[in-house]
């Protein structure tokens, strides 16, 4: 059913170089709206580089790529960035700002109403921590804040870099349920992980990367 949906990601022999070293060495990939894809692979396989290319955070060296309607060769990367949401495993916020302040900053930057913040925070289970500085949150809570940031933004393409790292079973279950809702709502989600997703509720497409190439594709 998802394959009838419009294409959100279209890569053809996409190569990304950094200092002459290939981070991605010829990736061809199509992703449709309302799909969930997990990108697996060992450290250095190119998972984060692929996500960063899709976010317009690294330049395409050769090949062609269209993401969320923006041509990565000729289009404005800032236009693309406003259409994607990024959640990194390092933590994606200003540590000295509170949960509320971080979300207000994101909402105002994107000219979104700030009235939704309290409901989003409640949705990700941080209602009791809304005025807590982000640096005082646990890893799992920071991940929930990241999801809140993305829920507030409602991007077309969600890019989650190792979101399951240091999450307990409850956190993983919460994450799976929320991703299921997001995909059902028509957003495209790409998740990087070391191992295939062990989820009872989600049936993602799994791509395996090695040496900057896709070497396995299982639906």
């Amino acid at each position: 059913m998802a394959n009838d949906s419009p294409l959100v990601v279209q890569l053809r022999d996409a190569v990304v170089l950094a200092g002459g070293f290939p981070l991605l060495s010829g990736v061809t990939l199509e992703l449709h709206a309302g799909s969930l894809t997990v990108v697996t692979g060992a450290n250095g396989a190119g998972k984060t580089s692929l996500l960063r290319l899709l976010a317009g955070l690294v330049a395409l060296s050769s090949g062609s790529a269209t993401v969320a309607g923006v041509d990565l060769g000729t289009g404005d990367p800032r236009l693309l960035r406003r259409r994607v949401g990024w959640l990194g495993h390092e933590g994606s916020f200003y540590d000295d700002l509170t949960v509320r302040e971080n979300l207000v900053f994101a909402a105002r930057a994107l000219e979104r109403p700030t009235g939704e913040i309290e409901s989003v925070v409640a949705h990700v289970g941080l209602a009791g921590r809304i005025d807590t500085p982000t640096k005082q949150l646990s890893a799992g809570q920071r991940r929930r804040l990241g999801l809140g940031w993305l829920l507030l933004r409602r991007p077309q393409l969600w890019l989650l870099d190792e979101p399951y790292a240091s999450l307990d079973d409850e956190g993983r279950g919460f994450f799976d349920a929320l991703l299921g809702d997001v995909v059902a709502g028509g957003a495209t989600v790409v998740v990087s992980a070391h191992d295939p997703l062990r989820s009872a509720s989600l049936r993602p497409r799994t791509l395996h990367l090695a040496g900057g190439r896709i070497v396995g594709d299982a639906s």
Binding site: A55, E90, A109
Partner: peptide, 17 residues
């Protein structure tokens, strides 16, 4: 320095300011 954490830099970059 407040902008230089890799995750913060990437997620703020996607705000397209």
């Amino acid at each position: 320095a407040v902008e230089s954490t890799p995750g913060t830099r990437s997620s703020v970059a996607t705000l397209g300011l």
